[in-house]
Design a protein around this nucleic acid. Structure first.
Length: 222
DNA sequence: GCGACAG
DNA sequence: ATCTTGTCGC
C-alpha cells in the first residue's frame, strides 16, 4: 500500500523524496528477460469514481499471458497532470498483489522518469515495489524532441535540461510514436529495446496492450 | 497572466 | 481516461 497524500502540495513533496530512490542503469541480462508484466487502469464512467485495474504476466517467448489479476477500488485523488500515480497506483498494486507468479520487469501506461520531478507512475511503481519498470506513454508529458522517422523501429531522444530522459519510439510505421522512459532499474536504451521487442503488429507493446484489452472488457479473473 | 499538461 | 459511427488508408 502506498502513502496517499491529501493534496497536490503533499503529493509533490512526496515525489521529491521518492525520486532519490530511482535507479537508472543497465539491466543485467536483458536478453534473458522472459516474463514481462503489464498493467492498465480503466474507469466505467459515473464521474470516474471507481477504478479497475488488470495486471498480467506475459511470456515473451511463447507470446502467452501466463497469469492475470483484477482489482477495483474507489478513487479519491483527482487526475492532475504530473500526479497520476496517486490516483492509479493504489488499484494497480491491488491487482499486482493478487498475482502468484513474478515478472522480470514491468511495463506501465504513463511516464517513467520523463516526468516534471523524475517520478512518473512507472518509476513510482518501481521504487515502491523495488522492481525494474518501464514507462510507456501514448503522449508527451515533458521533454522536447525532433521528428521521428516514419518507419517502425526508429526513435529519437527525448530531451530535458540537456539530458536524455527517454526516447520517442515509432513502434508501427506511420502511426503516432510512443514516449518510452525508464521507470526503475533499467537504462533508457534498454527500455526502448525491450518495448520494441514486445511490439509485433500493434502500436502498444503486448504486455500493456493485453492488459488494456482485458481491463476494458472488465475481464474478471482471480 | 497565459499556455502546457501521462491517464 | 470516457462519451461515440462511420470511414479513409495501408
Amino acid at each position: 500500500m502506498i502513502k496517499l497524500p491529501h493534496n497536490a502540495k503533499e503529493a509533490i513533496k512526496l515525489q521529491n523524496e521518492l525520486r532519490s530512490f530511482v535507479r537508472i542503469r543497465d539491466y543485467p541480462n536483458i536478453a534473458q528477460i522472459r516474463f514481462i508484466g503489464g498493467v492498465d487502469v480503466a474507469y466505467f464512467s459515473r464521474k470516474m469514481t471507481s477504478a479497475y485495474a488488470v495486471a498480467i504476466i506475459w511470456d515473451r517467448f511463447s507470446g502467452e499471458v501466463i497469469e492475470r489479476a483484477y482489482a477495483e477500488r474507489n478513487v479519491t485523488f483527482p487526475y492532475i497532470p504530473g500526479l497520476l500515480s496517486f490516483r492509479e497506483l493504489p488499484v494497480i498494486i491491488d491487482a499486482y498483489d493478487k498475482l502468484s507468479l513474478k515478472a522480470d520487469i514491468w511495463m506501465i501506461d504513463g511516464a517513467g522518469v520523463a516526468h516534471p520531478r523524475g517520478l512518473g507512475i512507472a518509476s513510482h511503481f518501481g521504487v515502491v515495489l523495488d522492481l525494474p519498470s518501464i514507462g510507456v506513454a501514448k503522449s508527451r508529458l515533458v521533454g522536447n524532441h525532433l521528428h521521428v522517422p516514419r518507419n517502425k523501429g526508429s526513435w529519437v531522444p527525448l530531451w530535458q535540461d540537456k539530458k536524455v530522459i527517454g526516447h520517442v519510439v515509432r513502434t508501427r510505421s506511420k502511426v503516432r510514436p510512443l514516449y518510452v522512459s525508464p521507470g526503475h532499474k533499467i537504462s533508457v536504451r534498454q527500455a526502448t529495446e525491450l518495448v520494441l521487442v514486445c511490439c509485433t503488429r500493434y502500436r502498444l507493446p503486448e504486455p500493456t496492450r493485453l492488459a488494456h484489452h482485458l481491463v476494458t472488457r472488465r475481464a474478471h479473473s482471480l
